[in-house]
Amino acid sequence: MLRVIFLGTGGTLPTINRNPSAIFINRDGEMMLFDCGEGTQQQMMRAKTGMKLTSIFITHFHADHFLGIPGLIQTMSFNGRTEPLDIYGPRWTKQFVRLLIELGYYKLGFQINPYELEGGDVIDKGDYIIRAVATDHGVPSLGYVLEEKKRTGRFNRERAIELGIPVGPLFSKLQKGEPVTINGRVIMPSEVVGPGRPGRKLVYSGDTRPCESLAKESECADLLIHDGTLADELHDWALETKHTTAGEAAHLAREAGVKQLVLTHISSRYSESTELLMRDAKNIFGNVKIAQEFMEIEIPLSDKH
């Protein structure tokens, strides 16, 4: 399972319909937050995600992307959490965590481990990785790629039996890439195991101008969640504030060959309607959505290479 829940989809100013940035990801029971704007813990309660997070990834230290963390960690502590929490982010993350622990009259019941990342840094999680991507927002800022490692190819049980391999431990050896010997003949894994199958790939831009580093990392992504703060008619304002227009995000998605694009960090000026954003994006890239609060996307596994 790889499920994405949008808990906060608004721009700098929250609205009655959009909270500040927060994206919840559940990968086979491991739960992560990417950004944690004000009110995120209440959004988690409404979405019934639970609070057993293993890690929080901060894209940058503008207030609308991290102000939800102090309340969230205090609630987790009040609820008896003892497991450590990892917080990743750009430069200033360690200082932020130190200040966070010192904030207010309370005693935190668990350890917080801060990690400062730069573009290109990789966190190896075993069967998947999270890679930090340098972005362009005028302050130290990162995007993130969650990419699963290649999976073993499909095992052809019928072919294995035809070759005289008895059902049992030898099947497992072949699936692990080890050759086996039957009646003096060496049978290679490639004879009964298909080509490796791709894992899933998800990219979150955070706040940024379109940039080459993000475009490269987004190649063939199953899902690209990109800053789509403004309509194309406000391109000059996007340049000044270091954000991306809907059309620019769609162009990046098209050039990178992503399967699906979701625009988020929607400016409060589009509180009544996001039709203009959708039109700008749809003119360039077909499979696009505007993020909504509590929208869920589940990314399926695929055998296509």
Results as ranks from 00 to 15, higher is better:
Ser218Trp: 02
Asp222Ala: 06
Leu224Gly: 01
Leu224Pro: 01
Leu224His: 01
Ile225Ala: 00
His226Met: 09
His226Ala: 12
His226Arg: 02
Asp227Trp: 00
Asp227Thr: 00
Asp227Gln: 00
Asp227His: 07
Thr229Gln: 12
Thr229Asn: 12
Leu230Phe: 09
Glu233Lys: 10
Glu233Asn: 06
Leu234Met: 13
Leu234Ile: 03
His235Met: 11
His235Thr: 10
His235Asn: 09
Asp236Ser: 10
Trp237Gln: 15
Ala238Gly: 06
Leu239Pro: 00
Leu239Ile: 10
Glu240Val: 14
Glu240Pro: 00
His243Arg: 11
Thr245His: 07
Ala246Gly: 12
Gly247Val: 03
Glu248Arg: 10
Glu248Pro: 01
His251Trp: 09
Ala253Gln: 09
Ala253Gly: 09
Glu255Asp: 12
Ala256Phe: 12
Ala256Cys: 12
Ala256Val: 11
Val258Ile: 13
Val258His: 09
Lys259Cys: 05
Gln260Arg: 15
Gln260Pro: 00
Leu261Lys: 09
Leu261Trp: 10
Val262Gln: 14
Leu263Asn: 03
His265Tyr: 07
Ile266Gly: 09
Ile266His: 11
Ser267Ile: 01
Ser267Met: 04
Arg269Glu: 15
Tyr270Phe: 15
Tyr270Trp: 10
Ser271Gln: 11
Glu272Asn: 00
Glu272Asp: 00
Ser273Ile: 07
Ser273Gly: 05
Thr274His: 13
Glu275Ala: 10
Glu275Arg: 05
Leu276Trp: 00
Met278Leu: 15
Asp280Thr: 06
Ala281Thr: 14
Asn283Ala: 14
Gly286Thr: 13
Gly286Ser: 14
Gly286Gln: 13
Val288Ile: 13
Ile290Gln: 06
Ile290Leu: 01
Ala291Cys: 04
Ala291Asp: 05
Ala291Trp: 03
Gln292Ser: 13
Phe294His: 15
Phe294Asp: 11
Met295Ala: 11
